[in-house]
């Protein structure tokens, strides 16, 4: 039985972690991390079959997750630490010199949980497809998950991978999209609109699910539903409607918080809205 009270508490703590993490170096990307705090929490605490205490690069016998939009590193690191991949104290080193918690994720620092570098957008779906193919070759029935930004879908490589995954029947893959409608220069619709996104993925031959990425019960239900959709010849994608900056009133829905850290005054205001639920790092 899923403990939604716990998941919501955890997601709230992750949001608080994110703001504290980007405030210290005065640098980072709070908007997307706040918007996807619920997703990372649901994935790692309710869906992903993986052992945080025995991380291996090849992930044999485990589900794998790849963060394609690497600038959501703060929320991912927070959830990895909270899940037990490494000590939560290390979250205080985010973006500082000599840290394993690089601005964008990398396996180069040997941080448990990270298998590929990301940051330059559009590459994670291809990597996920490759890892999914390896699982099939190895007779490993576990799944591969990826997360992408909606703005990231403007990258051509995403559509190369989308075409390939469907053509080759990669059905042990669940891609997810942080569908918040925002990117650095403004609303996605005014930068380069994605049009009918669901129709596009359907036309590419994917099994498409939709959900509210900031509604924990709905999100968890859809993630489990997606698992049921695997193994049927098609790759699966979940379009998650989210709000950039969710949880901090002056950040919600504002693309200006894509890649900006709060100043001291803004930090205090944000902290007042983000309760310490599990315990600060």
């Amino acid at each position: 039985m899923t403990d939604f009270e716990f998941l919501n508490k955890m997601a709230a703590q992750v949001r608080r972690d994110v703001i504290r993490m980007v405030h210290r170096p005065s640098s980072g990307h709070p908007g997307g991390s706040l918007g996807c705090a619920d997703f990372f929490t649901a994935l790692y605490f309710d869906v992903l079959r993986a052992d945080p205490k025995h991380f291996t690069m090849d992930g044999t016998g485990e589900d794998l997750f790849f963060l394609s939009n690497g600038h959501l590193s703060a929320a991912w690191y927070s959830v990895l630490a909270r899940r037990g991949y490494f000590d939560v104290k290390e979250l205080s080193t985010f973006r500082l010199l000599n840290s394993r918690l690089q601005g964008h994720p990398t396996p180069a620092e040997h941080l448990p949980g990270i298998r590929i570098a990301s940051g330059s957008l559009g590459q994670g779906l291809s990597v996920g497809c490759g890892a999914a193919l390896a699982k099939k070759l190895n007779g490993d029935s576990h799944l591969v998950y990826t997360l992408h930004g909606d703005g990231e879908l403007q990258e051509g490589q995403i559509w190369e991978a989308a075409l390939f995954a469907a053509a080759k029947g990669i059905d042990n893959l669940i891609a997810t999209v942080d569908y918040n409608g925002k990117q650095i220069d403004g609303p996605v619709d005014t930068v380069v609109g994605l049009g009918d996104l669901k129709a596009k993925w359907l036309a590419f031959g994917w099994d498409v699910l939709e959900t509210n990425g900031n509604d924990m019960p709905a999100l968890v239900k859809t993630l489990h539903e997606a698992v049921e959709h695997t193994g049927k010849g098609k790759p699966v994608i979940i379009l998650m409607r989210t709000q950039m900056g969710m949880g901090v009133d002056f950040m919600v829905g504002n693309h200006k918080w894509h890649g900006k850290a709060p100043n001291d005054e803004e930090f205090a205001k944000a902290m007042a809205q983000l309760p310490e639920t599990i315990g600060d790092f």
């Binding site: 992930g59 990597v127 890892a131 193919l133 390896a134 490993d140 390939f164």
Partner: peptide
């Protein structure tokens, strides 16, 4: 079974290769 025709999509081919190594393959 161990050969992957990627079509005219080299960026995807490089990403697929990186992903395949994670499962212990040598692409």
């Amino acid at each position: 079974d161990r050969f992957f025709q990627t079509g005219i999509a080299e960026a995807n081919m490089i990403g697929l290769s990186a992903g395949l190594t994670i499962g212990g393959k040598i692409p």
